[in-house]
Simulated assay, not measured.
Amino acid sequence: MFMSLEKQPPGIVERVEIPSRFLGETREIHVYLPHNYSPLYKYPVLYINDGSDYESMGRMISLLNERFQNRQARRFLVVFVPVDKSVRREEYHPAGSKHQAYVRFFADELVPTVEERYAAFPMGPARGILGSSLGATAALHTLLTYPRKFHYLALQSGAFQDASYEGVTAKGRELATVPIYQVVGLQEDRFQSASGKVIDILGQNRKMRDLLQSAGVDVNYAEYDKDHTWGFWQEDLSRVLDHFARHTSF
Rank of each mutant, 00 (worst) to 15 (best):
D108P: 05
S157Q: 06
T177Y: 12
P9E: 06
A107P: 05
N36Y: 11
F160S: 01
K207F: 07
S20I: 03
E223M: 06
I12G: 09
G203H: 08
E91M: 09
A170N: 12
S4V: 09
R173N: 12
Y152Q: 00
A136I: 06
T26Y: 11
E109F: 01
Y152I: 01
I201E: 04
Q182T: 05
R206D: 03
F121I: 07
V13F: 07
M208V: 02
M123F: 09
H247Y: 08
L175C: 03
H141N: 07
P44L: 01
V168M: 04
N49F: 09
S133Q: 09
K226S: 15
E25C: 10
D84G: 09
S132Q: 10
Y41C: 15
D108R: 08
Q8K: 08
K42M: 15
Q192F: 12
D189V: 10
L143Q: 06
E25Q: 13
P147V: 03
A73E: 10
A95E: 15
Y221W: 08
R209I: 03
Q8N: 08
R21P: 04
M123C: 14
F121W: 12
S38T: 09
Q192T: 13
V168S: 01
E17G: 09
Y165W: 12
A222Q: 12
R246K: 14
D236L: 05
E109D: 05
R59H: 12
I180F: 05
A194K: 14
Y221R: 04
R246C: 10
R190N: 11
K42V: 09
Y43P: 01
G216H: 09
A194M: 14
A120H: 00
E14N: 11
K171R: 15
H93F: 10
G58V: 02
E55T: 08
L46C: 02
G172C: 03
P39H: 11
G24R: 09
P10A: 07
P179V: 03
P44H: 02
P39A: 11
G24F: 11
E28Q: 14
E116F: 13
A136T: 05
T113F: 06
A107H: 03
A163R: 11
E109A: 00
T142F: 07
V219L: 04
I18N: 04
D200V: 04
Q234E: 13
S157F: 05
Q100I: 06
V111D: 00
L211A: 08
A222T: 08
L237N: 07
Y102R: 03
L63T: 08
S164F: 02
V114D: 00
Q100E: 15
V178Y: 04
F68E: 02
Q187R: 13
P34I: 02
M208P: 00
S193D: 15
G11Q: 04
G203V: 10
E116L: 14
V111C: 03
E66G: 13
R206I: 04
L153A: 01
D227S: 12
P179I: 02
V31F: 06
F250G: 11
F76G: 00
R67D: 05
R75Y: 11
A107K: 02
P19T: 07
E55L: 15
A120E: 00
I199F: 08
Q161T: 13
K85G: 15
V240H: 02
E28C: 14
L144I: 06
V45A: 01
D162N: 13
I129W: 01
P147W: 06
A245Y: 06
D236W: 06
R74F: 13
R127E: 00
D242C: 10
R89M: 09
A176T: 15
G203C: 08
